[in-house]
Nucleic acid binder design. Structure first.
Lengths: 170, 170
DNA sequence: ATTCAGGATGCAAAACTACACAAATAATTA
DNA sequence: TAATTATTTGTGTAGTTTTGCATCCTGAAT
């Protein structure tokens, strides 16, 4: 076999490995290089942990403390947030609505940035009996629940007026 | 008799330490816990590496490979806080925050005029478990506390995520 | 062909970090 | 106040990651 093949084999092996590492980091909870090592070995990549350390360094993969009390490796630029892309083309404004949550006499609606006032206006226009009023920020709406109305009253009325947010109500 | 003094001493020591760690991480190139340890010791903080490991975990400070071939510790949401750091010469966004006060299921934050949305966004980005959402005016932020969370839960989480506002919390 | 340079990698040691445990302290409750 | 429970921390060490060095492979230059 000629040199090019052999070289190609190596290079490809390395690049495939780097690609797989990115994939794995993105799709699984990787908490240590040893764990990553096992996964890679089981996929047919013959490497050692030392190489992984170098690979992770090349890929700028960081080790961060996660909320569940463990450490995880994460890809750089992982601060990707849901944006308007996944809703463009839709005719329904409420698709910009992410979630609704009630707390005591208040409600909090999370929306895609810049959509809150539109959504807020839409809610106002329906004049819900259970709501005293709404106020919109950039990506958040607050509303005040009228005296004597319960959380389930509010949920019922919201779903009645806006069936499409059924599964966004906490 | 000295209990209060001792308590104050310890608590303050810890929160000051956390705040200093954030500052140091933000302003210097920290490449290891040992290095951070030396810096802190030289500033009069008596701690050990083990404590730093725990502090960094609490603060969600990550170890990332940097472009210059070294490893560095960086604050969470570094892209966000970095882009905001050139804001009015202040090294810390939260310097625009004047006070935080809780009432029932709501909280009110007073800020320097025009700083509220920036600060509000900073709080949102940290995704505090105890908060349902925030909304910003010009110099005031309201936030809604999630059901089942107490005032002390909120205070604890706020200080955990933003050690520097320790003394601004009523 | 030989030599030299550079990249990739394993090995093992060094460096570094996290954690179990125990002790001290603080907060809470009885 | 005493007892109980929770928090914080240092010590020692286990666990993890990084790195120096040797080696192998390849490509380029001599």
């Amino acid at each position: 076999m000629n040199e090019k093949f052999i070289k190609a084999h190596w290079m490809e092996s390395k690049n495939q490995r780097l690609a797989h590492i990115s994939d794995i980091i993105q799709n699984e909870q990787v908490t240590s290089q040893e764990q990553l090592l096992k996964t890679l070995l089981s996929q047919g990549f013959a490497v050692t942990q030392a190489t992984l350390s170098r690979d992770l360094k090349k890929l700028k993969i960081a080790k961060v403390p996660s909320t569940d009390g463990t450490y995880q490796y994460v890809l750089p630029n992982s601060s990707v947030s849901a944006s308007m892309s996944d809703f463009s083309g839709s005719s329904n404004i409420l698709n910009g609505l992410i979630s609704v949550e009630l707390s005591a006499n208040m409600g909090v609606i999370k929306t895609i940035p810049a959509f809150s006032s539109t959504i807020s206006a839409a809610i106002d226009s329906r004049k819900l009996k259970s709501l005293a009023g709404t106020i919109a920020g950039d990506d958040t709406i607050f509303f005040v629940i009228r005296e004597k109305f319960s959380h389930s009253d509010v949920k019922k009325e919201l779903i009645e007026k806006f069936p499409e947010l059924e599964n966004k109500l906490k």
